[in-house]
Write a protein that binds this DNA or RNA. Structure first.
Lengths: 230, 230
DNA sequence: AAGTGGTCTAGACCACAAA
DNA sequence: TTGTGGTCTAGACCACTTG
């Protein structure tokens, strides 16, 4: 059982035992020290491999409780969230951008609730269109705390998406996917039929002190898919 | 600059430097050996912390090239993909299940292309409805290689979703999100209007030898959201 | 050619949770 | 109480890639 050379090989060996049923679902596997002896490597190497498998959902680990193969594994899928320009260029398209609206307006109740802010507060509402090879790619519908984005910052040439990532890139946030029907204005911008099914990516961003900075809904053109490594 | 106690504290210290601009975007940061000396810990501890930050998208690392703060970070969002029953129960609902159709039919071209299988091959087509508290939760529209799922396996009481996860849980796969309009049959099952925007989660699963096993499209009831930790 | 991250090792101590 | 994973250390060698 020796001959295992690195943590990635240990990972593969462990995964093979899970898949083969050698380590049955719901059961406990040997502890790290035993596996290290069997595989002829250091315990730290086994630890690294099993830690990775646990992070991927293949194993569950507990101090004193040992390591188990979950009866019903919860796999994890990872999505990369980039700037829209990067996304378009990564798909091989030429990026374009057009500002559609930029005004101060009362914060809608639904957005306020998600951000835990008083509804009706005057926030900055920015709507913009992102294009790939001249065709509509997605509509960015954003609400911004005016305290975080002074009116002097214009989004004519640079999108709010990009300005925010550059300026306060490193903040907490949440993501969600949903499907929404295109309203008349959005349909016009995306050159699709009103009521068309659009993939929406919603994102809320908070400052270190917990106060909301911005909420954005990206409405993608019909047919758009977001893929993940499984 | 000493007094850092573990890799998580090193991680926080490094993140603080990124956020404060002390390590500017696009720039290179000191190498592991220097940081270990500054923070008074072992190089392996610094390595662990920076490796985690790189996995989250905060840093980019290259041998010989050093570690850099990306100019435009690509953040990563992680979604947990569980069994539908678990998903419903996790939301606090009572789970229900109903098989709608189970027949052999020629594999549609679009599915065949995604799976790299000959179109028109006779595959098993299973359609089922999952319910939460008696209300439609999602429609499962699945194509199965008959070699992987013998006709003797019935999906009357147990969903194909659950059977597959239990039986060949540990296979490679891919995920994608999309938005689709409800067709007449789906609308009837989900008790929504035809044409309603539905969030679709598509998943393809492959055996270890690379052959396709199954493709499934989960069409969720209108308003459904899938959230991720950002 | 040489610098930097990637990883392994052997030993140690700690923290948590199960028995 | 005690077993198991979580982590740290110091040193070492390797692999990639840049200059």
């Amino acid at each position: 059982m020796a001959g295992v050379r690195g943590w990635q090989e240990v990972r593969e060996a462990a995964l093979a035992r899970i898949r083969s049923g050698d380590w049955p679902a719901g059961g406990r596997i040997p502890d790290e020290a035993d596996l290290a002896r069997d595989w002829g490597c250091a315990r730290a190497t086994v630890n690294r491999a099993l830690r990775e498998l646990a992070a991927e959902g293949w194993l569950e680990r507990r101090r004193k409780g040992g390591t188990r193969v979950p009866a019903l594994p919860v796999r994890r899928a990872v999505f990369g969230i980039a700037i829209i320009r990067q996304e378009v260029e990564a798909r091989g398209g030429a990026y374009g951008y057009r500002l559609l609206a930029d005004a101060t307006a009362p914060l809608p109740g639904a957005v306020a609730a998600a951000l835990d802010v008083a509804p009706g507060a005057p926030w900055r509402h920015v709507v913009a269109l992102h294009l790939a090879d001249g065709a509509p790619y997605c509509v960015e519908d954003r609400w911004l705390d005016p305290a975080a984005a002074p009116a002097a910052v214009l989004f004519e040439a640079q999108s709010a998406n990009e300005w925010l990532v550059r300026t306060l890139a490193y903040a907490r946030g949440s993501f969600a996917f949903a499907a929404v029907a295109a309203d008349a204005a959005t349909a016009a911008h995306l050159a699709c039929a009103p009521g068309a099914a659009l993939l929406a990516l919603e994102r809320a961003t908070f400052a270190a002190d917990g106060r909301a900075i911005t909420q954005v809904r990206l409405l993608h053109a019909p047919g758009h898919r977001v893929e993940a490594a499984g």
